[in-house]
Design a protein around this nucleic acid. Structure first.
Length: 493
RNA sequence: GCCCCCAUCGUCUAGUGGCCCAGGACGAAGCCCUCUCAAGGCUUAAACCGGGAUUCGAAUUCCCGUGGGGGCACCA
């Protein structure tokens, strides 16, 4: 491969939960880095100290690792281009802001938030676009110097040319041409001495030698500004890739708090932290996520490792994608079927334990082939397999009555089945199934009636893994006891 | 209000001027298999937003609408 190694980064702000959109951005960045033999970096954009949420950074790191997106450099790993937390890089930004001021690309601004708000209100009243009115753009140098010397609080604003256009190139959308008069002299360094995103991200991407910037399309609006900042420094631009947003399942608008809550009620989530608890696998989530915004023609079941081979930024799509949770189910179930028995056993065990069940490892291994293709989510193992680990089951009495028969008749059948099973030295399915089929045959009943009663007696439920294989695993003694118990229930009706 | 982005089956998408009466996947319907539920196999329905233009020829290029999304902070 003759492609140059790419350095990519995932740069979230620690203001909330790691969600689907972030996970997908991280995935694509990871894929590109790995595909080209480059590095994938985690950078924490925590310059808005008021919005920083304790624990959010840890959740991001945990989430990425759970998804299998190991970063090569990051806050907890270090690296050649650290620190990787923006609040620890203050001086770097201040130095760069100063350079911009010296070169005439930026200027100190003494306007207070109150003044700014007033101006904005008046502009709105006049139906003008809200924008900075340029009060401090052309202050005399000595006045500026004096006010700074007096300790007057100030910000630094980036100076956008009044005339002309800015042409910014996005890899997915081509040239985006914006008239400069539409642009605003944005604050790049705040009163508190910390940078805004516009400065911090540009400086860091350059300093960290990022080659491809992947970010959400919500940055498209400030894209021309960013390009201007990079050019003001005289730096080479990275390849810019603005990813589309995720829309709620209806396709009308993006996911809101309400949508998120509604999804949760259905056993789905857009937050990575919930995925494991809901029984989703990293493989399923990543596969699902990857395909919303990446056009893969066929064979779309892939692990992250397989995605690396096939990934290309040219096949990314620019249009917004509606989230489809049914497809998450599909990918999750498909990957579950691909796991080895040992792997699936290890992944499922915690869900049994969570239910307070004592798991015998040898039994666990034996039930995997029986339940594997029945699982959509890992926690489905409870509904299909909990009865293997319980001392006794408590069948619903009505479920024990076979279709078309009454309690008496059903009890008779159960007693006969008991006799047949009791006469056997073991209850391997090879031995028992033919015997019981023969009984069905001679009794004139149908298999669903007889097997149905047995199923409910043994498993306590109407839907279960294959009956005879299950009985073999449970063992003769327990099976006989459970059938006996069912007879007792039927006799009391 | 202004600016920007997007537009193929219900959904995710393939398609880069003729290979397309548009292909795949999820979902849906039907059949087969079957001890329940699944899984699996087979089959069916289902789309190029509208209007102009360019061209011998347009899902594919351009323009105008329309619809959807995003942005207009000392937030990211």
């Amino acid at each position: 491969m003759s492609i140059k190694p790419a350095r990519t980064r995932f740069a979230p702000s620690p203001t909330g939960h790691l969600h689907l959109g972030g996970a997908r951005t991280a995935l694509y960045a990871y894929l590109l880095a790995k595909k080209t033999g480059g590095q994938f970096i985690l950078r924490i954009e925590d310059t808005d100290t008021k919005r920083t949420v304790p624990g959010a950074e840890q959740e991001i790191m945990d989430g990425l690792r759970w998804l299998g997106l190991e970063y090569d450099e990051g806050p907890d790993l270090g690296g050649q281009h650290g620190p990787y937390r923006q609040t620890e890089r203050r001086e770097i930004y201040q130095r760069h802001a100063k350079i911009l001021v010296e070169r005439g690309h930026a200027y100190p601004c003494f306007c207070t938030p109150d003044q700014l708000e007033k101006v904005r209100q008046e502009q709105m009243k006049r139906k003008e676009n809200p924008h900075y009115d340029g009060t401090c753009r052309n202050l005399a140098p000595d006045e500026t110097a004096k006010r700074i010397a007096d300790g007057e609080p100030h910000t630094i604003r980036f100076k956008i040319p009044h005339d002309g256009v800015t042409v910014a190139h996005d890899h997915l959308r081509g040239d985006i041409v914006t008239e400069n008069k539409q642009l605003n002299d944005q604050v790049i360094l705040k009163t508190d001495g910390l940078p805004t995103y516009h400065l911090a991200a540009m400086v860091d991407d350059h300093e960290m030698q990022i080659t491809h910037v992947m970010r959400g399309s919500e940055w498209l609006g400030t894209f021309p500004l960013h390009v201007n900042i990079v050019r003001a420094f005289g730096w080479d631009e990275p390849t810019w890739i603005h990813l589309s947003v995720f829309l709620k399942p209806s396709g009308k608008g993006k996911m809101s708090k309400r949508e998120a809550a509604a999804a949760m009620k259905d056993g789905y989530s857009i937050f990575i932290k919930d995925m494991q608890e809901l029984g989703f696998t990293p493989e399923g989530v990543m596969n699902w996520c990857a395909l919303m915004g990446w056009g893969v023609a066929e064979d779309d079941v892939m692990t992250v490792g397989q995605m690396i081979d096939r990934f290309s930024i040219d096949s990314l799509t620019p249009s917004p994608a509606a989230i489809n949770f049914q497809k998450l189910d599909h990918f999750n179930a498909t990957h579950i079927r691909l796991f080895t028995t040992e792997d699936l056993a290890a992944r499922i065990k915690p869900y049994f334990t969570r239910e307070g069940l004592l798991v015998k490892d040898d039994v666990l291994l034996k039930i995997i082939p029986l339940i594997r293709e029945r699982l959509t989510t890992l926690d489905d193992c409870i509904s299909f397999g909990a009865f293997f680990f319980k001392e006794d089951v408590t069948p619903n009495s009505e479920d024990l009555i076979a279709k078309g028969l009454d309690a008496r008749q059903s009890a008779d059948i159960a007693r006969r089945v008991y006799q047949i099973l009791e006469a056997q030295p073991d209850i391997s399915h090879e031995r028992c199934e033919p015997l019981l089929r023969a009984y069905v045959e001679e009794s004139g009943l149908n298999v669903n009636q007889v097997f149905g009663i047995l199923r409910v007696a043994i498993t306590g439920q109407k839907v279960s893994p294959p009956l005879f294989e299950s009985m073999e695993i449970i063992g003769r003694d327990v099976c006989l006891r459970r059938v006996q118990n069912a007879i007792g229930i039927l006799e009391k009706l």
